[in-house]
């Protein structure tokens, strides 16, 4: 049942590019650098696809490779050694966690889309407004606080609450391995909100 390398590579790329990009971005906080890092990692991976055992720990391998490159880049920036070490230690924890948690098994865009659509509909009004301003309109917490005339702490609390709800949705999805996929059109996330 071995597929050809190109097909295997494309499947792994499609399943992972988004989260790896977000993973890189969390360190470097610059889109161009994040894209470069993910491209470097996949390029290396492509070159060695025959040597790498695709059945075991491919996701943690990719997460680790991205973090290594991102931290290397940070080392050349003006970042305190304490912060760098802390980020590194937290990342070790993260990778340990990814290796055994089931939420990372859901990579299918449609599945995630569906899960999020359901969860968003259930968010309380204020909470949903804050969440959309943050994730769709890309506003900073401070800006949202000003727009909505609430404190930054309240904004952060709303965001966390929303994420918590979405998380329990996805968790639920992950635990039901036999999910019948409903082919929903690739409606943009923004439309979800408008509806």
């Amino acid at each position: 049942m071995r597929q050809d390398p190109k097909a295997r590579f494309e499947k792994i790329f499609d399943d992972n590019y988004r989260r790896l990009y977000a993973h890189a971005l969390r360190f470097v906080q610059n889109e161009e650098d994040a894209e470069d890092i993910v491209a470097d990692v996949f390029y290396e991976f492509w070159k060695r696809i025959d040597e790498i055992d695709l059945d075991s720990g491919i996701v943690t391998y990719l997460y680790r490779a991205v973090a290594t490159r991102a931290l290397n880049l940070l080392r050349h920036r003006n970042i305190s050694p304490v912060r760098l070490e802390t980020l590194k230690a937290i990342n070790e924890k993260r990778i340990e966690f990814i290796a055994q948690d089931d939420i990372y098994d859901i990579v299918n865009a449609k599945e995630i889309h569906q899960g999020l659509r359901d969860a968003l509909a259930e968010l309380p009004e204020k909470c949903r407004q804050v969440f959309v301003l943050s994730y769709i309109n890309n506003l900073k917490s401070k800006e949202i606080a000003e727009v909505m005339n609430i404190s930054v702490r309240t904004v952060e609390a709303h965001i966390y609450k929303a994420l918590k709800l979405l998380r329990s949705r996805l968790k639920h999805l992950a635990q039901h391995t036999l999910v019948i996929l409903i082919a929903i059109g690739v409606s943009s996330f923004a439309e979800l909100y408008v509806k």
């Binding site: 988004r18 989260r19 977000a22 969390r26 994420l163 998380r167 996805l170 968790k171």
Partner: peptide, 8 residues
């Protein structure tokens, strides 16, 4: 897990 949701 929350971070992952946020990433996605």
């Amino acid at each position: 897990e929350t971070e992952y949701v946020s990433d996605m």
